[in-house]
């Protein structure tokens, strides 16, 4: 019984399964980095972050996922937030990177670049073979 449950828990989170599922996992996994990157050097509120992610990337962005994720990143000390009154008639919650958030964003970006460069070199033969 233990192995069945444990296996299922692993399956949902780790196993790539079909190519489509693998792509979804890949995009989901990049969401944290994309959020940290969108806040680099600027303050944005939730809806602006969502629009930036939708326009600037090919990520699958679910609104119901991004807000809890922002809250989790804040709890991890990577983001800070402040309420700012707006002309729209309601206050907006702006997020910005903390020093720790900046450090982690650049670490993750470096790691991402290194990883994709090494993977790309492995993929070169696939592009040549028709």
């Amino acid at each position: 019984m233990y192995y069945i449950v444990y296996g299922m828990a692993q399956d949902e989170s780790d196993e790539p399964g079909s190519p489509e599922k693998w792509e979804v996992q890949l995009r989901k996994g990049s969401l944290e980095l994309a959020i940290l990157a969108s806040l680099w050097g600027q303050k944005l509120y939730g809806l602006e972050i969502l629009r930036q992610l939708e326009n600037g990337s090919d990520l699958i962005v679910s609104e119901g996922t991004v807000y809890p994720l922002l809250s989790r990143l804040k709890a991890l000390g990577l983001l800070r937030s402040e309420w700012v009154e707006s002309d729209a008639g309601h206050p907006r919650k702006y997020y910005s990177l903390t020093p720790l958030g900046k450090q982690r964003a650049s670490d993750m970006a470096r790691s991402w670049t290194r990883f994709s460069a090494s993977l790309n070199s492995l993929l070169v033969p696939l592009g040549k073979e028709k």
Binding site: M1, Y2, V5, Y6, A9, Q10, S13, D14, E32, L73, L76, R104, D107, M108, R110, S111
Partner: peptide, 23 residues
């Protein structure tokens, strides 16, 4: 409890950021 905690740990790890990439 052992089964539940093992599954919880696995699930939470899959949601955590990989914050300390190997340099």
């Amino acid at each position: 409890s052992y089964v539940a905690l093992g599954s919880i740990r696995k699930f939470r790890q899959s949601r955590k950021l990989r914050l300390n990439p190997r340099s």
